[in-house]
């Protein structure tokens, strides 16, 4: 049996205290949240620990933590990606995958046979010892692969993991939503839409779907493949 791989992160890097506890598999509102200075061990579903480190480093160059605020690291983007790749999406369960596979024109989009899991695995392997590079050299390495399917996929997934509902493992503690003032899937704006016409909506504490409903909602990535 394959040894279980973990992503080990200081709890404080991950959007803060509350979400670290969710990621460790405990309730959002539980009593046993780890201390901020403690490490959290996040079980990986697809990546090896080494692959996770490479992807994590990539996402941190794509959406860096900087003066403008939190980035892919705090949002836990790599955890989002790991879960997506482990689920139906990564396996192309809901893609038409019958052959023959033929190259076609750009108007027909991606016609390749490789599923996202393979695109990542091959792409990571080609990057070599990415985590050992300086940030500037990492940028150069990414610029060199900017037009590949792999890079564009990682970029897309980085934004997804940054701004998704936390139920998917990204946007930890809703750091992404705070960055852009998104209030979450709030149901009632009927009395706000004219009031805030041409006026920025006030900074509110965002609400996740779980907080809105008062219960956990499983993401599609949890569907058995």
């Amino acid at each position: 049996m394959k040894r279980r791989e973990f992503l080990i992160l200081p709890a404080k890097t991950l959007g803060g205290y509350l979400l670290a506890s969710t990621l460790a598999g405990e309730s959002l509102f539980g009593q046993n949240a780890p201390k901020p200075e403690a490490d959290v061990k996040i079980p990986l579903r697809f990546f090896t620990a080494q692959e996770a480190a490479v992807v994590s480093a990539m996402t941190e160059r794509i959406f860096p933590t900087d003066a403008s605020g939190a980035g892919a690291r705090e949002a836990g983007v790599v955890i989002f990606i790991d879960r997506q790749l482990a689920g139906p999406y990564g396996h192309d369960k809901y893609r038409y995958t019958k052959g023959p596979w033929v190259e076609s024109i750009p108007e027909h989009g991606y016609q390749g046979q490789a599923n996202p899991r393979k695109i990542y695995r091959d792409g990571i392997a080609k990057l070599g010892d990415f985590t050992a590079l300086s940030a500037a050299n990492q940028d150069q390495a990414l610029i060199a692969i900017e037009r590949t399917t792999f890079f564009q996929m990682v970029r897309t997934h980085t934004l997804e993991g940054m701004f998704c509902d936390p139920l998917h493992g990204g946007n930890a503690d809703m750091v992404g939503w705070r960055l852009i003032g998104y209030p979450g899937p709030v149901m009632a704006f009927r009395h706000e839409i004219e009031k805030y016409r041409g006026v920025p909506y006030p900074k509110v504490e965002p609400q996740s779907l779980e907080q809105m409903l008062g219960r956990k909602v499983p993401g599609w990535e949890d569907e058995p493949v």
Binding site: C164, D165, L167, L209, M212, L213, V217, G219, W220
Partner: peptide
């Protein structure tokens, strides 16, 4: 009610 989720419904077409 459970479906107000951009990833699964807008991006993965659940």
């Amino acid at each position: 009610m459970d479906d107000m989720d951009e990833v699964d419904f807008s991006l993965r077409f659940r």
